[in-house]
Amino acid sequence: MNGRYPFLVSIPHGGTSVPPEVRGLVNLTHKEIVFNSDPHTRLLYGFDDAVEALVDFDVSRVFVDTNRAPYDYPPRSQDGVVKVITQDGTPVFRKGRTPGRELIGALLQNYYHPFHGRLTGALDTLPIEIAFDCHSMLPRSPPVRMDAGRPRPLFCLSNRGDRNGKPKTAGGLVTCPPEWLRALARSFQAEFEGEGRVAMNDPFRGGFISVAHYRRRRIPWVQVEINRGFYETPDREVDEARLAGLRGRIFSAVAGFWDEVSG
């Protein structure tokens, strides 16, 4: 034993960089790119020394979203592996400059596939017993979603199931045992008692990363979302000391869950 928890932590949306392949095509300011990424998640979930593996990503999800299927790109999709519009409907690229198939292929080859390769390598070579795909979410559902304006919980934990973590249909896929997801929710609720609601599969049920890698290895995956309103001001300012404190509490909740289910 090396003293580390047998966890893989994936942080796919924490990066804010613009790939050189699309520089000159972009319609967004740096501030807009940061807002439409998952800023601060690399600090919030930066459990490097306490877990078996941590895989993060430098590029903004606006340009390469590793939590989307590689075939889900424009014009087929506006919110796929390469975005056409932001969460508030702003065009990502200048008029007439949306990447075509060749450029999208280069982005997949240079950034998307290497990220997934790192996840695969960790799952195949390290003693991983559960993986967490870690994100942040806006306090309310953004304008581009069907539930626009709906308030969101403090945390959302997802396994592709229903709001109790169970399969939505008989024999349906869940990426983590329902009893594990409920134990994780209890641990988060205990750690953050009185500060907000911990929901399961609401408003998110888990994305491409957790489903694809669960199907390949059958190692459990949970998607974790924290409400940005918990640590950002209305002007989107943050206190790094508060973020560091939250990181410790999030890890305490995850570690407490594991101590319960693995004991």
Rank of each mutant, 00 (worst) to 15 (best):
N159G: 09
R197G: 00
V84A: 14
P70K: 00
N201P: 10
L108S: 11
N2H: 11
C156S: 12
Y112F: 15
N36V: 07
F188E: 00
G245Y: 07
A170S: 09
P234Y: 13
Y112L: 00
E260Q: 12
V34A: 06
R249A: 02
G263P: 04
P127V: 15
S10D: 03
S252D: 05
P20E: 15
D58A: 15
F63D: 01
L246P: 09
H116W: 07
Y73I: 01
L119Y: 04
G149Y: 00
T125Q: 08
D162P: 10
L44H: 06
I128S: 05
G117W: 05
V261Y: 14
C134G: 01
P75R: 10
R182A: 12
V62P: 03
D162C: 08
H30W: 04
S252Q: 15
L8G: 04
V211D: 04
D147A: 06
L108M: 13
F257Q: 03
G15E: 04
Y231K: 13
R152P: 03
G3K: 12
V64Q: 03
G165I: 09
V174S: 13
S158M: 09
D38I: 11
R217F: 13
S77W: 12
P143H: 09
P39D: 04
P178S: 09
D58I: 06
L173Y: 12
E52R: 13
T169G: 02
A212K: 13
L138D: 05
T90L: 09
M146I: 06
N67M: 05
H135F: 08
V26N: 01
F57Y: 11
